[in-house]
Nucleic acid binder design. Structure first.
Lengths: 345, 345
DNA sequence: TTGAAAGCGCTAACAG
DNA sequence: CTGTTAGCGCTTTCAA
């Protein structure tokens, strides 16, 4: 099977032209006579000829593929980013090659290596070790070596020369969340989080403390609850721990939609009501927020815009334009039904 | 950038050996002297040399890539299948190239065309027009033409010669669901569904009617509610329509997890309780089922096994083994908290 | 407007 | 065990 692939040589021979002419017709160079275009086009159709992207890539020393390394395609956050990036890449005539590392750090190395071998024209990395506050030296070295031959764009802040970053503004995200809750009258606010080793969490936590101070509210350390993962079960666990405390906040934030959905489950399981007993606010605003009852109010990133900037940055890097090292996307707040005003008795 | 890529020629020259020797070392053919292996390996490390998969593919006329066309990577069903397929492909030394068609039929054509041009060794197609009961002639023709050069495996039943299928057993799924509900004492069962143009839905519906008859239960047509999409909003809409009816079933099934989550929302919004007032049962059992409160009881497909069979079938097809045209994966039922026994008064 | 010919970077006989 | 050589299928000067 497939051994008998037809090539431009076959087409050329049968059409009585040179392979070069077939090649020209394939890419639509106008410098070919109508007549030959017709003959060749017909043969292309007749044989269902699909020119080999492999041969073309070898010859042009570029693949028109853009590699993507994502921490976890099962996570709706990443799958949203990915979907949007696909659209953007297609629009520009590129095809995305996604490698998911399934949250396993060692797979980041193999993913990057594979993409380098595939000679993708650029690599977009979202999540994983690039987000670590404490950079991993081995991984950094790999990144540096690949950067010599392939353009790299991170879906987070870049601290590296000649590696670009497009990042959510985590601090502004927290601001939005806090402002909203405070405006609703909440003065006692808790936060269920995970991943302090990552920038996103660290920045949110720091901004949380700062904003509390600005608003003249006391930070209650026991309401800052660290859980093991970004999943639903972690959210439930957070609530279990919270509910053992003698005093309770009136509003709670969860680090992402899954954790917050878990928190909601936990509260409901205890016969508590949202938003009557607790206001709940989430970060990311993936479709998860619309699946729960009540639906979750969440800080929202425009994934379309995010993807656009990611791919644009990659394109500009390839065109050797002067690209700014870091770009940020501005979060907004999408209000649904999980938060209510708090009126102190 | 990247123009100065190092090749096996550079390595060979500097090591004082032939390119062929470098090539042998790269793939680990044992027939090279220790000494040369050492010298070459060192240079490979020194230059961070990554052999070009493009050149290799051209030379071997195979890419070791397996293409995947998925209807909607945002849908957790497909992202689960994809993740599992990634693992399976990696294990076998293949790398997956995913193209999402974002549920737009016209993108199926471009996705297949691109994968054919990329010369992937096999293509796995999940969802989209291949699942249509009424096959699309244009699409079928494309499929037939690609099948001449590339092995194709469908994530559903295949009706085509030399195209293989790995499919969920939809009829058995419905059986499992019905048996469970009937065993709980439900006699009045409704079904919110969409996609009658697809096999999966048609088979479920037919089996639903048949099972009702077998159990001696009357089918109430007004409880078979067709909604516009596979999303949460459709589920809510289904419930709205159901609640206008004079009589109500005691148990409801939703065509997938999103629809069922929407149904749950709809019921809760009306002050109804699950499972006390209505039992709710879903199909697919993606992680969505664990995000709602109560968590959803659902018919479960083993995605790991599904992916395994999909990729295995592709491998066997490539090895020209005698592959059975269609294989099925056997569903199971995962019981959570959305169904309760029904005791007629 | 067209064709010849030299690559692109690797692999795989085939000799030696 | 190792080197030479001829592709793999397309693009791209360079001439004509």
């Amino acid at each position: 099977m497939g051994r008998n692939k037809v090539t431009i040589y076959d087409i050329a021979r049968e059409a009585g032209v040179s392979p070069a002419t077939v090649s020209r017709i394939l890419k639509g160079s106008a410098t070919v006579s109508e007549e030959k275009v017709g003959r060749v086009s017909e043969l292309i159709r007749k044989y269902n000829f699909h020119p080999s992207a492999v041969a073309r890539a070898l010859s042009q020393t570029r693949t028109r593929m853009i590699g993507m390394v994502m921490a976890d395609t099962g996570n709706p956050y990443y799958s949203s980013v990915y979907s949007a990036c696909c659209d953007e890449a297609y629009k520009r005539g590129y095809i995305p090659m996604l490698l998911s590392t399934q949250s396993r750090p060692e797979m980041e190395v193999s993913a990057l290596t594979k993409l380098a071998e595939q000679r993708v024209d650029a690599i977009v990395i979202c999540g994983g070790r690039v987000d670590l506050i404490e950079p991993d030296p081995v991984f950094t070295r790999l990144l540096m070596s690949i950067r010599e031959t392939t353009h790299i764009v991170l879906g987070s802040k870049s601290r590296y020369e000649r590696i670009y970053g497009v990042s959510v503004d985590h601090e502004l995200s927290m601001n939005l969340a806090m402002d909203y809750l405070v405006k609703l009258g909440h003065r006692e606010i808790g936060f269920v989080y995970t991943g302090i080793q990552y920038y996103g969490t660290k920045e949110k936590l720091e901004r949380f403390r700062r904003e509390m101070k600005i608003h003249g509210l006391p930070v209650r350390e026991e309401w800052l609850i660290q859980v093991p993962g970004y999943d639903c079960g972690s959210g439930r666990e957070g609530i279990e721990r919270l509910l053992t405390l003698p005093q309770q906040p009136t509003a709670l934030m969860g680090i992402n939609d899954m954790v917050t959905a878990g928190m909601l489950q936990g509260l409901l399981a205890h016969g508590l009501h949202v938003p009557e007993d607790y206001s709940l606010l989430s970060f990311d605003d993936t479709y998860i927020t619309t699946l729960t009852a009540p639906q979750l109010t969440a800080v929202d990133y425009d994934y379309g815009q995010y993807a656009h900037m990611l791919i644009d940055t990659a394109m500009e890097a390839m065109e050797e334009k002067g690209v700014p090292a870091n770009r940020f996307i501005v979060p907004t707040l999408t209000v649904r039904s999980s938060c209510a005003p708090f009126n102190c008795a």
